[in-house]
């Protein structure tokens, strides 16, 4: 009896010299995930604010009080300031994000369509504007707009003041415009070319094809990235505090000044800002990821 040859994988270690398809490496061959921040936010459990609150309350155990000013005094101060912070601080964060999104969407849609225009000059110009604002740091854009824009404009003898938060709206709408432009361009190009060919064979003009056939199909798939950018924009609005625009973070600082700048105030006040931003952005992030899964192209 000759010795039986062991079978690779059963009687011996698995081995082969045949070319095989290696397992898909998730780290390498993937396009960058535009939903990175939103996906992370949406993956947090819904009870995160309670966790933050627990950390805030447990803080004095870690950093023991050093003076007569107790940690509970700081919480009392927070409760007294809360209405002001919400209605005159966070309100402006929301207002800025709404208006910046509205302007950014309208301008971005126009820019995105210009990017797929048949006119090469227009196409290149739109591409350049998109790349310029998409790749500039938001804070730099904000600085330029806040310092370069006038604080009031005179139209026919009527003085129209432009408050700082309005300038922040313009500043933040620029990167949003550029990113929405890419969303629109990407969505239009993701429609199978057969749709274009079919409509051309049915004697649709280019404009009719775009408005009646292509864009209606794009609309649905543009919603998740659009919401994604809204969540990112909202989380970026505290950047304005660096420029003195009166929003939640700026007013939190001023409130702490009004309470004599006790260091004990820092955790409750900034913790509150964290919680309120989370509670606003979290549902948007969850809905975005849900819609993204629902509308994504199944392969």
């Amino acid at each position: 009896m000759s010795a039986r040859r062991p079978i690779p994988g059963l009687g011996a270690a698995p081995s082969t010299d045949l070319p095989v398809l290696l397992p898909f490496d998730r780290g390498k061959g993937r396009t960058p995930d535009i939903y990175l921040a939103t996906r992370w936010l949406a993956s947090l459990p819904p009870w995160t604010p309670l966790l933050i609150l627990a950390v805030m309350l447990a803080w004095p155990l870690v950093a023991h009080a050093q003076g007569r000013y107790a940690y509970s005094d700081a919480f009392d101060a927070l409760f007294r300031w809360m209405p002001f912070l919400v209605f005159e601080g966070f309100f402006f964060n929301i207002l800025i994000s709404f208006l910046a999104m509205a302007i950014g969407t309208v301008a971005g849609a126009a820019l995105g369509l210009a990017q797929i225009s048949l006119n090469p000059m227009l196409r290149r110009a739109a591409w350049f504007i998109t790349q310029l604002f998409r790749n500039s740091p938001w804070l730099v854009l904000l600085f330029i707009v806040l310092l370069a824009f006038p604080f009031e404009i005179v139209i026919g003898g009527v003085i129209i003041p432009i408050p700082d938060w309005m300038k922040a709206v313009f500043g933040l709408s620029l990167p949003i415009m550029a990113n929405i432009s890419e969303v629109v361009r990407g969505a239009v190009q993701s429609v199978p070319t057969a749709q274009w060919e079919a409509s051309e064979s049915l004697a649709f003009t280019r404009r009719q094809t775009m408005w009646q056939i292509i864009l209606p199909q794009c609309f649905k798939r543009m919603i998740p990235p659009w919401m994604n950018w809204y969540a990112i924009l909202t989380m970026a609005t505290p950047l304005c505090s660096l420029l003195g625009v009166e929003e939640l973070i700026t007013l939190s600082r001023q409130a702490m000044e009004g309470e004599d700048n006790h260091p004990e105030l820092l955790v409750p006040f900034f913790g509150f800002a964290l919680v309120i931003f989370f509670m606003y952005c979290y549902p948007i992030a969850r809905a975005t990821i849900w819609l993204e899964r629902k509308y994504s192209v199944k392969l």
Partner: peptide, 14 residues
């Protein structure tokens, strides 16, 4: 100033 107590700062009603 809105950040320089007690020369210029905000009270609780803003």
């Amino acid at each position: 100033k809105a950040d320089y107590k007690p020369w210029g700062y905000r009270n609780e009603s803003g």
